[in-house]
Amino acid sequence: MIQKHHLSHLEELEHESIQIIREVAAEFRNPVMLFSIGKDSLCMLRLAQKAFHPAPIPFPLLHVNTTWKFREMIEYRDNLAREIGVELREQINEEGRAANINPFDHGSQRYTQVMKTDALKAALTAGGYDAAFGGARRDEEKSRAKERVFSFRDRNHGWDPKNQRPELWNLYNTRVAKNESIRVFPISNWTELDVWLYIHYENIPMVPLYFAKERPIVRRNGALIMVDDDRIPLEPGEKPEMMKVRFRTLGCYPLTGAVESEATNVVEIIEEMLRTRTSERQGRVIDYDEGGSMEEKKREGYF
């Protein structure tokens, strides 16, 4: 129970995250907030609003668009940026798009490398950003459990797990040389449940994909894949069926598995989550290849 002049855990996390976001704005020349439109991004964005209120957010948002995102996500993104009054920058790997790099013909690994990792690196280099916020949490996956809040990246945006700076108290070492940068994870200490509860208490509007609805679905390798547009090549005999599903994470639609669900609002999602207990990255096809694959991707510069 909370006593007088003592914070609840969620309040404590909120104030900690605000401190981190302000520190970046104060110490870096050219920060940017990576914005994926997912729930973690939305939580982080609200924290950024709080950090600078009544002033506007003093840095732009950057969205890496793989061109295979759910359509609803893009719509939602554009409306939101307009409402909040924050600058939104979009990055697309045009070379990849011209070469028609897609998850079906090129496999999830190569596609992610080109359209996501390469695009992100290119955007960060082109923008000359010295700090980039990300909405990653330590509880998402084992290799993230030891990620720093301020995660140092070399000139090639690579992450060296052996060369991370010790991080003490809330005193962050923000110094970087030219062309080096720092990834900052202000909600490192939040859990999936914390994020959902915060969204609930703060009444943050969400992309409707998070809520259960009848959607056209095909089953592939045990994952439920939504037929979001006609670019998805159907296998012989494969026919989309309407199923009541929702998404626990939002990514590229061919790589993001849905879960069958009846939850149509945030409270129902929380209840469902509490009762089912499977970790959220399970819906993401990309992690399946090898036990430590997230770590390998991080070394290469994926978040």
């Binding site: 609840s8 855990h9 404590e12 509860l197 208490y201 009762r275």
Partner: peptide, 22 residues
């Protein structure tokens, strides 16, 4: 968590969760 949910209901659970300290 299951028994707690059954006992408090989701709204009661969320209210309680909100006041937990860290």
């Amino acid at each position: 968590i299951q028994t707690e949910l059954d006992r408090l209901g989701i709204d009661g659970y969320l209210e309680k969760y909100r006041t937990k300290d860290l």
